[in-house]
Amino acid sequence: MKYKLLGALRRIAILLLVVWTVVSLVTLLIDLVPGDPAVAILGEQATPEQVAQFREKHGLDRPPFFFSFPRDPSGARHFEWHGLSNRYTEYWWGLLHGDMGRSFRTDEPVIKLIFARYPATIELAIAALLIAVAIAIPLGVLAGRHKGTWIDSFSSVLALVGISLPGFVIGPMLVYLFAVKLGWLSASGRFYPEDIILPAITLGAALSAILTRMVRSSVIEELGEDYVRTARAKGLSENKVVYKHVLKNGLIPVVTILGLQLGVLLAGAIITEKIFGWPGIGLLLVEDGINKRDYRLIQGCVLVISVTYILANTLTDMVYRWLDPRIRVS
C-alpha cells in the first residue's frame, strides 16, 4: 500500500515536472525564431506602426522571461529584472484560464482551432491502433506457435520490414495502388467513412510490426509454462489453449506497448495527416502553423500533442502497475 501510494505520487510529480518543462520550452522557443516574427507575418512592406501594433497585441513587445542580460551602450551585459510582466508568465496565466493566445494569421483563438481538429486525430490514432492489433495478434500467435519454422522467419522479416518502412513511403504507395490504380478509395480528405482506411493502415503499419514481435515472444514464453501443460492434459484443443489461456497472460506486456505507442501514433500522425490531407492537429501544425510561420499556433499544437502523449504514457504506466503487481515493488 505504501509503495503504491509512493509510486503514484512519484509518477504525478514527474508528470507535473515534464508538463512544466514542455510549457517552458514551448514558450521560450519562440525567441529562437530568426528575425522578427511580426515582420515575418506582416511582410517587409509593413509600416513601423503596424509592426508595433502587432507586437503589442500578441505580447511580443514584452520581455520573454523574468530577467534578461541586455547589453549596455558600452557593449557589456548586465542583469535586468522584468518582474511579472513577461511573456512566460502571460502564457502560463493564459493557459490556466484555457487561453493559448490568438493565431498570428487569422486572429482566432488557438485553442478553438486546435479543438476543432483534435477529434480527427484521435479518431485516426484509434483506428490505427485497432488495425495494428487486428494484424499483430493473429500473426504473432502464428509465429509463436510455429517457432523456428519458415512461418516464424517469414513473419519476423515481415515485421522488420514494417518497422523500417516509414509512413511517408507506405502512404503514397497505398494512394497509388488504391486511389490512382484501382480507384477504390479517395486519395485524400475526410469526407466518407472509408476515407480513414488508408491513413489508418499507414499509421498503424509500424506499430503492427512491433506488436507482432511482442506477441510472438510472449506466446513462446507462456507456452513453456506449467499451466499450459495442465490445460493440454485436460484435453483442451490447441486453439483454446492459445487463445483462452496463453493470450490472456501474454497480452500484459502488449498492453503497455499499446499505451506507449498511442503517444507515438499521435506524433506520427503529423506525417500521415500530411500525406492524406487528414484534417487533424498534425495537418494544422504543418500547414497552418509551420508553413505560414504562425508561431502562436505552433506553440499550441506542440503543447497539446505533447501533453496528450505524456498523459497517455502516465496512464499506461499506472494501468500496467495495476495489472501486474510484481512491478510495483521493484
Binding site: V18, V26, V33, Y295, V302
Partner: peptide, 17 residues
C-alpha cells in the same frame, strides 16, 4: 522519455528555421 522525439525535432526546426 516523456516527449515524442520527432515532435521535439519538428518543434525545434519550426522555430530555428
Amino acid at each position: 522519455l516523456a516527449f515524442p522525439g520527432l515532435l521535439l525535432a519538428i518543434a525545434l526546426v519550426a522555430f530555428l528555421g
